[in-house]
C-alpha cells in the first residue's frame, strides 16, 4: 500500500481563507457547509439560509469573484480562496451602487432574498455592464423571491447597471 492513509485522511480541516478581505483560520468539521461556516463560526448572518438544497439562492456568496450557493459548497473546499459576503458589499453610510439601486426601485419587500439577489447582480454587472431584460432574468434564475413578483427586482438591476457604470467611471 503506497498511500499513507494517516497522512491523507483528516478528522477536522484547518480552513484558511479570506472573508471580506479579513484573513481567517479555523478548524472545521469536514461536512460543514460554507453557509454554516459563515453564519455559525464567523457570525456573518447577512448570508441567509432558505433551503439547504441549492434551490432558493438566499445563501449566495462570492468565491474568488464568482457567485456560488454557500449551502451546497463544502467549506473545506474553499481553502485559500477569497470569499465575499453581503457584509463586505457596502457601508450603511455609503451603499454599494447595486444596494442603492435596490433601495431606490424597491427591489425587495421582506428582503430575505436580497443578499443573494445583490451578489448575483454584482456578478452579472461585472461581466455584462448593460444587460438586456432577458439577460437579467437569466442571471437571477438561481435566486427565488417569494414577495416581489420579480418586476421591481428587474427594474432595480436596470437602475443598478446605470449607477454601477457611472460609479466605475468616476473611480477611474
Amino acid at each position: 500500500m503506497a498511500v499513507d492513509m494517516q497522512e491523507l485522511v483528516e478528522d477536522s480541516v484547518l480552513l484558511q481563507c479570506r472573508v471580506n478581505e479579513t484573513p481567517c483560520e479555523e478548524f472545521i468539521h469536514p461536512t460543514t457547509s460554507l453557509l454554516d461556516f459563515l453564519r455559525e463560526n464567523l457570525l456573518l448572518t447577512g448570508t441567509h439560509m432558505g433551503c439547504m438544497t441549492g434551490h432558493c439562492g438566499a445563501c449566495t456568496v462570492m468565491v474568488d469573484g464568482s457567485i456560488v450557493k454557500s449551502c451546497i459548497t463544502l467549506a473545506a473546499s474553499v481553502q485559500r480562496k477569497k470569499i465575499s459576503t453581503i457584509e463586505g458589499l457596502g457601508e450603511k453610510e455609503s451603499l454599494h451602487p447595486v444596494q442603492a439601486a435596490f433601495c431606490e426601485e424597491s427591489g425587495f419587500q421582506c428582503a430575505y432574498c436580497a443578499p443573494g439577489m445583490l451578489l448575483s447582480t454584482v456578478e452579472l454587472l461585472n461581466e455584462t455592464p448593460d444587460p438586456s431584460d432577458a439577460e437579467i432574468r437569466s442571471a437571477l434564475s438561481g435566486n427565488l423571491c417569494r414577495c416581489t413578483g420579480y418586476q421591481s427586482i428587474v427594474r432595480a438591476v436596470r437602475t443598478a447597471a446605470k449607477l454601477y457604470t457611472a460609479d466605475k467611471e468616476t473611480q477611474e
Partner: peptide, 22 residues
C-alpha cells in the same frame, strides 16, 4: 450527520485511486 466523518484531499490521481481502493 455522521460526526466521525473524515476528509481526504489527494494531490495526485494515483493517490486518489489507491485511497479509494484501500
Amino acid at each position: 450527520m455522521n460526526l466521525r466523518m473524515q476528509y481526504a484531499r489527494p494531490r495526485k490521481l494515483d493517490q486518489a485511486t489507491e485511497l479509494l481502493d484501500a
